[in-house]
Each structure stands twice: as structure tokens, then as C-alpha cells.
Design a protein around this nucleic acid. Structure first.
Length: 458
RNA sequence: CGGGGUGUAGCGUAGCCCGGUAUCGCGCUUGGUUUGGGACCAAGAGAUCGUCAGUUCGAAUCUGGCCACCCCGACCA
């Protein structure tokens, strides 16, 4: 997948928002290698097994001219690696192998590291942004002296993700815990945030794992505690990826293109001048320049599109497609009246503002758009979350209404697998705020203590 | 890997059944008229029809092999 500049700008905005939140919670960035020796990779068995089917492997380190095919290259059989290198599908292995060297004492803990990186998972079927063979993400890897501290870290980062997705992406999420079948291989517990897309399908937007001592044991990472006794350290890992861009697109867009929340929009405001002649453009430009400068001073990203190669109507359509939250049109009529035309992308609503109010009032409009997008998505999710009490109802909702389904489940992997097989729906999570409510599993009729969240998912 | 489908200009396509080197739209170039919601007119440029082989006087079209891509399924953030 190629991410073009405008799409990459969205990713950069996401990075900025998340990176600040990571730093604010005490984390630092570092970088670990792309290639992981196979022996290192296989040290944590469950993790290795979980990813084995989708690993790219480097077996050679040189190409040479193919004597049978002039001008073509071939793998040089002489250049076979002693040990194959796995292209990281995630970095637990190489990071824990490194942490082993860094940790001796409780005084070395905690280690709170994040890395921004690319990873490769050789998917059989890819989906733009949602599932690509190579993707960009961040992965946090922390090491702690106590179980309690690691668990608190896991939940803290889950909350960071939830806050980011809701505040920046304007997408409401449900925080929960994954079932045994859906959790990260190698983790004790996987927590996640689940979002609902406009087509009624769920999207896992981020995960935070409590690794227990699994990796510490696999990589022999021990520390001396205050009593002078050796113990394995406790770990977490957590990540979000460029999948969030796909989620952002699917959560808000309409038939006219993207709708971007102001907090992630590469361009907050586009100004389109209306003019027939160079003289008109000059006089419009003169009025626009101070507005641009002052909006930029206020911290907004402003584009003044003064191209004379495209008509205004074309530009209107173009920026709508790109999801720019606010468009300002200024023409000769506005110059006479001291006004501008303000159009918001989310509602398509147009207003005429006094020119002198633009700089002052625009931040509030952007705030309103941000909130309004969130509320719209929240209302949608609420209307698309259905409580069901029978398997017939369950299947009917999935087939006709779609969306999230809250149903009782007996807690067994067997039932989970059967439901998945028969309906394509998976347990998205066991919501953290699920109230204790005794009931009967929609599939088996066995007792259940709480409802879990089902959906068909990406 | 199983099942289905498609490869013709930068993109989307017609033509294929019934052989005679290619249609239309978008986009691109130039000129003119336009410019408050994706402009119009005119003139241009651009295609070894996925690839290799076969049949034929002649292949986008018929036959066979190969390659690539797409959709559905298994796998998945």
C-alpha cells in the first residue's frame, strides 16, 4: 500500500496526538530492528505459533546476475544465511531479548518504551488500510516489577487509546477484554477498544496486552527485588496502527467523500477565492491575506487555493472529497458587503459571516464540528446496538439490522466457535462496564453472568 | 490453497460469439470563450489489445500454455 501525502498527513496528526499522550504518561521512544533471528522469535512459543503462518522470512543476503537470463537477477545460492531472519510481525521477541540485557535490579524498572515502526504480516487477503501486508504502527513494550503495576499500565494505555479515538477521531469506542479465542497469543489478557463502522461492522481500533511473566520467562528476564530475591519481570504491550486511518474514513465519510474531524484534518480551513479577472483575484487576495495570517497565528492549518486553473465549483467538490472541515469562499460580492461564505463539511450547511468575525469565531466552529461528529457517531452506535435474548433474534439482527449485539454467552470457547462458524459474528469483547446480570447463553442456554459484545467485524 | 471472474491509452470501457490492427467517456495538451457548485467549443497527443506459441493471406477476436490482478472462502490489527 502506498500512502499518499494527504493520507500520510492524517497519520502524522495521529502520531502527534498519540505521541504526546505516551510522553505525558511517562513513556519514551526507541527503535528496535526489523529483522528478528528465528531462534529469538520462537522463544515464546505461543507468540511464535500465533504469527508463524503470516511471517515473511529472509533466507539470503545477496542477488547475482542470472547466467541463464541475461539482465535478470537471481538469488545467490552461495549467500544463504546461517540462520533465517523473521521480518517482525511484532517486536516482543527482539525487545524482550534486549530487556534481558538491560534489567538486573528493581532499580532498572519500570521500562516504559514505545516505538514507531513498520511490521509485516503476510495476509492472504488484504484490505486497504485495514489489513495490509506491511503497516505502520506504534508498539509500546513495558517491563515492571509487580503484577499490579503491569496490569495498571495495561489499563492505562487502553484508556489512552479510548481517549485518543474518542477525542481526536470523534469515534466512540467500547472498552473491553478479549475472549480466550480472540486474545493476543502470548498474552494473559488482551484488552481492546471496539468501534462501529457505518456499514454496521465492528473494527478493533487498538489493543493493550497484559503479558504477565510470559515473555520474561521465555527470555529469562529476571530482576533482584528489594529482598534480594530473583523474580521474573511483568510485561505489557500495546499498539495502534494505520488501520485507524481506515476506521476514521469508514466512521464518518459520506457519498461526497471524506469527513475529517478537525483534530486530525491536515487542512482545517480552505479558502476559495471567487474571481473573473486578475484584478478581482488581487483584491480578493488582499482581503484574504490577513485572515490567513491570523488563522495561522491561532494555530489553524489554512490553505488559500488561488489556482486559476480550476473553477470554484471544482475546488468546492475537491475539498469536500478530501474532508476539509471548513471552507470559506470570498468573492467580489463579499468584498462589497464585508462578508464571507462559510461552509461546513459535516452538515453541508452554509452561512454568511461578517469578515471581521472569521478569525475570532472559527475555532468555535471547528470545536462544534468535532463534537457534532462524535455525537453523530455515538447516536449511530447507540441505535445500532441491540440487546438480544435468543439465538433466532441474534441471527436476525445480524442479518437484517447488523451492528453490535449484546447477548449472554456461556463463556466457553466451544460456543464462541460455533456461533462464529454459523453466523460469522465474533465476540468483539467482554465490555469492562458490563453490568452483572444473570441470564442464559443465547446458544447453549447455559447460565451466564453478563452480556458480551458480538458483531461481524473487519 | 479451493470456487468464480477479468486482463484493450493514465483511469473506466466497447469491440470478441460471427477474424480484415480499435469505440466511447473521464483525464492530458493547445487555442478561444468562461469563472458565486465538478465549464463549454474546437483542434490534438496518447494502445506493440497481459504474455508466449499455434491456426490463418490476415488474430484484440479462434486454439493451447504461462503470468498478473479482482471477487467469494479459510487467516487476520
Amino acid at each position: 500500500m502506498v500512502i499518499k501525502p494527504y493520507g500520510y498527513a492524517i497519520w502524522e496528526k495521529m502520531q502527534q496526538g498519540l505521541d504526546k499522550m505516551f510522553k505525558d504518561t511517562g513513556h519514551v521512544n526507541a527503535y528496535f530492528p526489523l529483522f528478528v533471528p528465528k531462534s529469538m522469535f520462537e522463544a515464546e512459543e505461543k507468540n511464535a505459533e500465533g504469527f508463524a503462518k503470516e511471517c515473511a522470512i529472509v533466507t539470503h543476503y545477496r542477488l547475482k546476475n542470472d547466467p541463464k537470463n541475461p539482465g535478470k537477477l537471481m538469488v545467490d545460492p552461495e549467500a544463504k544465511l546461517e540462520e533465517e531472519l523473521v521480518v517482525r510481525p511484532t517486536s516482543e521477541a527482539i525487545i524482550w531479548n534486549t530487556y534481558k540485557k538491560w534489567i538486573q535490579s528493581y532499580r532498572d524498572l519500570p521500562i516504559l518504551i514505545n516505538q514507531w515502526a513498520n511490521v509485516v504480516r503476510w495476509e492472504m487477503r488484504t484490505r486497504l488500510f485495514l489489513r495490509t501486508a506491511e503497516f505502520l504502527w506504534q508498539e509500546g513494550h513495558t517491563a515492571h516489577a509487580t503484577r499490579q503495576e503491569a496490569e495498571a499500565e495495561t489499563i492505562q494505555m487502553l484508556n489512552v487509546y479510548a481517549q485518543f479515538v474518542e477525542e481526536f477521531m470523534a469515534v466512540p469506542v467500547i472498552k473491553g477484554k478479549k475472549s480466550e479465542g480472540e486474545k493476543f497469543p502470548g498474552a494473559i489478557d488482551t484488552y481492546c477498544i471496539e468501534a462501529l463502522m457505518q456499514d454496521g461492522k465492528a473494527l478493533q481500533a487498538g489493543t493493550s496486552h497484559f503479558l504477565g511473566q510470559n515473555f520474561a520467562k521465555a527470555f529469562d528476564v529476571q530482576y533482584s527485588n528489594k529482598e534480594g530475591k530473583l523474580d521474573h519481570v511483568w510485561g505489557t504491550s500495546w499498539g495502534v496502527s494505520t488501520r485507524l486511518i481506515g476506521g476514521l474514513i469508514m466512521a464518518h465519510s459520506d457519498d461526497d467523500g471524506l469527513i475529517l474531524p478537525p483534530k486530525l484534518a491536515p487542512i482545517h480551513v480552505v479558502i476559495v477565492p471567487i474571481f473573473r479577472s486578475d484584478e478581482e483575484l488581487a483584491s480578493v487576495t488582499k482581503a484574504v491575506e490577513p485572515i490567513v495570517q491570523n488563522l495561522r497565528k491561532a494555530g489553524l492549518s489554512v490553505k488559500f487555493d488561488n489556482r486559476d486553473t480550476h473553477k470554484p465549483g471544482f475546488k468546492f467538490a475537491e475539498y469536500e472529497m478530501k474532508g476539509v472541515p471548513v471552507r470559506i469562499a470570498i468573492g467580489p460580492r463579499d468584498l462589497e458587503n464585508g462578508t464571507v461564505e462559510i461552509a461546513r463539511r459535516d452538515t453541508k450547511e452554509k452561512q454568511v459571516w461578517k469578515m471581521e468575525n472569521v478569525v475570532n469565531d472559527l475555532p468555535a466552529l471547528l470545536d462544534d464540528i468535532q463534537k457534532s461528529l462524535y455525537n453523530k457517531a455515538l447516536n449511530f452506535r447507540t441505535s445500532m446496538t441491540t440487546v438480544v435474548n435468543s439465538y433466532d433474534e441474534f441471527k436476525n439482527v445480524l442479518d437484517t439490522k447488523t451492528g453490535f449485539v449484546l447477548a449472554h454467552w456461556d463463556g466457553t470457547p466451544e460456543t464462541e466457535a460455533k456461533i462464529k462458524e454459523e453466523t460469522k459474528a465474533t465476540i468483539r469483547c467482554i465490555p469492562l462496564d458490563a453490568k452483572v446480570e444473570s441470564g442464559a447463553c443465547v446458544y447453549s442456554g447455559k447460565p451466564s453472568a453478563r452480556r458480551v459484545l458480538f458483531a461481524r467485524a473487519y
